[in-house]
Write a protein that binds this DNA or RNA. Structure first.
Length: 424
RNA sequence: GUGGCCGUAGCUCAGUAGGUAGAGCAUCGGAUUGUGGCUCCGAAGGUCGCGGGUUCGAGUCCCGUCGGUCACCCCA
């Protein structure tokens, strides 16, 4: 074996074993997701898959692991600029929003994107170095009902593609000010229990104490069970915000659960954070997640308006969806039994295709049995036989592959009769 | 980046106390010289991930390396 795909990547091809390797499923998921987006009046945005590294560093936060642990695929271009392949979709979308003055248009702007994201991490089930996210950003408003719409949109897409055993978790982590009061309190509490925490949490306690809630260690979680709750520190405004989000979710019929331990990896989140998990996945059980980011747009040089978005992993959606049998089927397969018949088959196939009827033929010069086997495997509805007998009579034999019934159809004056016979 | 497990035919795997490789499925051909899904017969297909070492001899033992996988970290 000389060449392999890069570590942590995969190919999409006919006959792929894993659901995310199967081309038909990608076509299916993207089409369904686009339908749902369109019904919610979202427009597509396409931004580059690389940006200045600074943009990602600013948005993710200096303390985030994407930056600290060097999880970005970065490179220097020929002009000595530090660039990086995008680890997430929000920064590029927000940058474009500001760069093209989209805040001057009627607000909010409702955007969606589909595309590859990159993170230099060790691969495991549901986590790849290049993965694809379907994401959404609503920019220019802080209306809590928008939060509800965005969460419901995430849920609807998952429903549309068949994600199983899903639960949507919701939390409100307040604004920056609330957190600046809460964080020291939490830190002080954790300090008292330092001996019971795992080493990762101890390290994180100082830089970003909220993140200790993400820990999977039992002891740490036991300590956190007695920790001060952020809900007790929320301002009146923040408390109202969550309440309205929940009302909106109820109105839209989106089942959800509050989870006070839900914090997210990006520092820019404010107020609403949410996560959709599926029990059908392994350790990487988050199918899609997101949150509100009210300070981010102004931080990047735009107006002081709110925004909210989510990213949902297509690979994880496919893994969490019931095995879809998206069989590609063919209308007509030509079986040719004489060399001269092959040209006629091509001509007829061309005519059928122009009428929107799918057609294929044998290119291997193989025996009849092999050709019928292929007609069967491709799921063809009809096999059209062109042999010496047919050539002599200027007709073709149309075989219904399901019933086995056969019919002679004239082809002397073109494919007209064949089209009529085979069209449904 | 850390750790466990694993790398033998296209796929799933077997390979017994070290004696230079097998099965099932898939593919191709035939039984059926004009007919698929079932059955039967046959063929093709492998530098046993790669590199070293031990040995008369290594798929099998040892070391290294690369890759895969799952988990941690983190995250979609």
């Amino acid at each position: 074996m000389s060449y392999r795909g890069p570590r942590g990547t995969y190919d999409v091809f006919p006959g792929g074993r894993e659901p995310y390797e199967r081309a038909e499923l990608w076509t299916f998921v993207e089409a369904r997701a686009r339908e749902v987006m369109a019904r919610h009046n979202y427009s597509e945005i396409r931004t580059p898959i690389f940006e200045e590294i600074e943009l990602f560093a600013r948005t993710a936060g200096e303390a985030s692991d994407i930056v600290v642990q060097k999880e970005m695929f970065s490179f220097r271009d020929k002009g000595e600029r530090e660039m990086a392949l995008r680890p997430e979709g929000t920064p590029g979308a927000v940058r474009a929003y500001i760069e093209h003055n989209l805040y001057k248009l009627a607000q909010p702007i409702k955007l969606f994107y589909v595309g590859p994201m990159f993170r230099q991490e060790r691969q495991q089930r549901g986590r790849y170095r290049q993965h694809t996210q379907i994401g959404v950003e609503v920019l220019g408003t802080s209306d809590p009902l928008v939060d509800a719409e965005v969460i419901s949109l995430l849920y609807s897409i998952h429903q549309a593609v068949g994600v199983e055993d899903e639960v949507v978790y919701l939390n409100n982590i307040g604004d920056m000010e609330t957190r600046s009061i809460y964080a020291p309190e939490l830190r002080a509490y954790l300090q008292k229990h330092v001996g019971e925490l795992d080493s990762d949490s101890v390290a994180r306690m100082d830089t970003n104490p909220l993140r200790t809630f993400d820990s999977k260690h039992e002891n740490t979680q036991a300590v956190l069970a007695g920790a001060p709750r952020i809900s007790a520190y929320l301002s009146r405004e923040a408390a109202d915000h969550v309440a309205t989000v929940r009302e909106g979710l109820d109105a839209l019929g989106v089942p959800h659960e509050m989870d006070e331990g839900l914090v997210r990896g990006f520092d820019y989140y404010t107020m609403t954070v949410f996560e959709a998990k599926s029990g059908a996945l392994g350790a990487q059980d988050t199918v899609g997640a997101g949150g509100r980011y009210n300070g981010l747009i102004s931080d990047l040089g735009g107006p002081d308006v709110g925004g909210i978005g989510f990213g949902s992993g297509v690979e994880r959606m496919l893994l969490a969806a019931a095995s879809q049998e998206a069989r590609v089927s063919l209308d007509v397969f030509f079986v040719t039994l004489a060399p001269e018949a092959r040209i006629l088959a091509m001509k007829l196939a061309g005519a059928l295709r122009e009428e929107g009827i799918s057609a294929d033929l044998d290119y291997g010069g193989r025996g009849m049995r092999a050709q019928f086997k292929q007609a069967d495997r491709t799921g063809a509805s009809y096999a059209v036989i062109l042999g010496e007998d047919e050539l002599a009579r200027s007709d073709c034999t149309v075989r219904d592959m399901a019933s086995g019934e056969e019919l002679a159809v004239p082809v002397a004056d073109g494919a007209k009769d064949l089209i009529r016979t085979v069209a449904r």
